[in-house]
Design a protein around this nucleic acid. Structure first.
Lengths: 190, 190
DNA sequence: GTCTATAACACGATAGAC
DNA sequence: GTCTATCGTGTTATAGAC
């Protein structure tokens, strides 16, 4: 039996959609209330502030990525296999919450109390990503290109998935992850 | 002899930097004026509105990309060579204006009068990009993967360059374009 | 070309009735 | 749990002096 959505969860879900369309700063509490069919003042029975909503959206996603990365690192796989697992991680999380991913990617700078924590999680994630690529180069699994450029290229694509996934609801998410892994790892040249 | 920067150009340049840091909606005319060392009211002797600034930043960049793409299309090169030219185009434009690229990528939805025009330029650009990839598949130059996924992957990386370039001022922009082309086209697998 | 002053309105958030 | 009313502040933009 699926747990029912609380009122706060509903507010956060609707807010994430509006934040994706216009960005955190351009969405007013009156906009959000109207979309919920209530008055702005009523929102405050469920959340403590607008900032509270942004934190809830971003931090839970950032922690999901951190948890997923930690599992990948602990797994005893080849570097290429680890990268494929990371592609799958991004496809899975982005598919489940495309709206929230927009806030994670473009509105993180509006975090207040939790900004430092977010930046630490993001930085650790990137460092772990980089270590996997460098190990792959050392293992002779990965071409000896600049690892930073490789990470930048892969991560840019993975971080942009939320912009593209909503238009591709016909493609299964496991198919997409396989397809994307091939392009990112094998290239496109025949 | 280099043309001197007009006061409006200076305002637009400083605004682009602030827009990159906090986004269009979160930057106030007082913020911008303070950064220029004047009062907010004084800005209006040089620009007609805040919206005017955003338009100036975004539309000129969008037209640069359109012009560059048109040159690539008219050139009589292989599909792979055309893609390499597009990588070079993005690296060149993004290197010259990293701050403006942030607005182009994340604040375009705040355009008012020019929103439709921007969307047409962007859509045409993507269609041209897709045609080049599809021709490459037909020519047997490019692996027969889903062309939309290939375009999404390449374009995501190219559109994110502005986030990454400011930290890599030591790398020459032609070296970066070559390096990036190799990774995007040949992949990373050994 | 910049200033002070201010118009006209929108913002996040709270108080207290129901 | 939602409402009406409102506080205190911030917003873009204009008018007119210097």
């Amino acid at each position: 039996m699926r747990k029912l959505e609380t009122r706060k969860e509903e507010i956060v879900r609707v807010a994430a959609q509006l934040f994706k369309e216009k960005g955190y700063s351009a969405v007013t509490m009156r906009d959000l209330a109207a979309e919920m069919g209530i008055k702005a003042a009523s929102l405050y029975n469920h959340i403590t502030s607008k900032q509270d909503i942004l934190q809830t959206i971003i931090i839970s996603l950032a922690e999901e990525f951190t948890e997923g990365m930690n599992k990948v690192i602990r797994s005893e796989k080849s570097s290429i296999e680890k990268l494929k697992k990371i592609v799958q991680l991004h496809v899975t999380i982005a598919s489940a919450n495309t709206n929230g991913m927009a806030s994670l990617n473009t509105d993180w700078m509006h975090l207040e109390d939790q900004l430092e924590y977010y930046l630490k999680l993001r930085n650790d994630y990137e460092q772990n990503f980089l270590v996997i690529i460098k190990e792959g180069v050392k293992n002779l699994e990965i071409k000896s290109k600049n690892p930073e450029v490789i990470m930048f290229s892969m991560l840019s694509t993975l971080r942009s998935l939320y912009l593209w996934l909503p238009n591709k609801e016909d493609v299964s998410s496991s198919d997409l992850a396989l397809h994307l892994s091939e392009i990112l790892i094998e290239g496109i040249n025949k």
